[in-house]
Design a protein around this nucleic acid. Structure first.
Lengths: 226, 226
DNA sequence: AAATCTCCGATTGTCGACAATCTGAGCGAA
DNA sequence: TTCGCTCAGATTGTCGACAATCGGAGATTT
């Protein structure tokens, strides 16, 4: 759902998706060198399609390329994540405000249902934050879709979110934030259901700010440990 | 300044820049088919680099590619531009608020100087909206730079703005908005100089909303004419 | 020993040719 | 006439090979 059809279309697209997955899950470490010939070999394709895939990932900011030197997996330092969350706050805040006007009652009910499923998941296995994260992304993406803004959907859905998912995989150990997050999600849906765009935006911005604080603390700990 | 070094680096980069320029200036019409062999020939390069360039432009949303069919120049319809301006409003509003805190006094003075130069230009040749547009983009980009947010700079500066420039070339006939725009720019700078982030954001949002109304009316006229 | 230079292996950049696929014209049937 | 089918022509997708460039090991100089 978040990662489109993996095995279809051009080889370059397949490579891009597989690479994106490997990077997001951490299978490919941050800063790791990406050897064209090697990867092409492992994917069973020529270097041409693979180079196109790298260009694509470069556009997604998942890899950084330097001419005549090569491509490396991007490194998510504090500054990068801080910037990302600031952009998210602005963009998703706007999405929320518009979604409160644009979403149909059906879509809102569906969104609420997503949270029910989500809650059930947390109740069942309190530790599986992984699926929570994916579900959380689904939640956010549904709202973005509700804004009917194609550019936003592309910006957040298809591209930027990969960075977020990458970040999640890195910091998915702390489960303690899932419950307050769920509550905040409920409040956001309630605001949208009331067609209160301003409140929905405010709540979403706070929600994202809270997520950033949480991530930020975690980075602090990691840095202190190192 | 807005278009990086044209003739250096890999051929794919050269092709991407030249194509971007041709698209933005309208030299390549909207919706026009982009033939790989043809373009590669005209640029004096093989199809490999050109394909990479197309991938890049696809990421910039300047072209739309369909597997096994080819690439076409994107068409800027009302919906696309509306979405673009909504995103701009959120992003540049945020940039303004942060820039009001982060910019140095030097940078603010420089920004003010840019407007002086800008005013002088308007006084000299009241009709040359072209250079006004470029200068306007410079103004907006300077503020984005002032936010110190790398992601924002990449999003607005290197990529999204090409779409804007494309739009400007299309609708650059109406010069009557340059003077109020300049005034609004001055007010924004004043707010930033006072370190009033909230006001700066508000003014920038209004400024962009005004620009959108202007563009929107122009599209209406065009549609009525057609 | 430290710094610099030189050269070689490895990697990226580029090209040309071939295979796969789509588009559209022309033909035939309902 | 209109619809569907077939089949070239053109265009995209892919590969393998060659040229250009970079990084690093080792030798040389101070």
């Amino acid at each position: 759902m978040l990662l489109k059809e993996p095995e279809q279309g051009t080889l370059a697209d397949v490579a891009a998706h597989r690479l994106a997955h490997s990077i997001v899950t951490g299978e490919l470490a941050q800063g790791q060198k990406l050897n064209e010939a090697e990867l092409a070999e492992s994917f069973g394709m020529g270097r041409g399609p693979l180079r196109e895939a790298l260009r694509h990932l470069e556009g997604m900011r998942l890899v950084k390329r330097i001419p005549n030197v090569g491509a490396r997996v991007v490194v998510l330092d504090r500054k990068t994540l801080s910037d990302l969350y600031a952009v998210r706050e602005a963009l998703e805040g706007m999405a929320c405000r518009i979604a409160a006007v644009q979403m149909t009652d059906d879509e809102i009910a569906q969104l609420s249902g997503l949270l029910d499923k989500h809650e059930e998941q947390i109740r069942q296995d309190g530790g599986k934050v992984y699926s929570q994260s994916e579900g959380d992304l689904d939640f956010h993406y549904q709202i973005v879709r509700g804004s009917r803004n194609e550019m936003l959907m592309h910006l957040l859905g298809s591209e930027q979110y990969q960075l977020l998912r990458m970040c999640r995989y890195r910091t998915s150990r702390n489960a303690q934030r899932t419950r307050p997050a769920l509550l905040q999600h409920r409040q956001i849906v309630a605001a949208i259901a009331n067609r209160d765009g301003e409140l929905a935006e405010l709540l979403m911005r706070r929600h994202i700010q809270g997520a950033w604080r949480s991530i930020s603390e975690m980075i602090d700990k990691e840095e202190k440990a190192a």
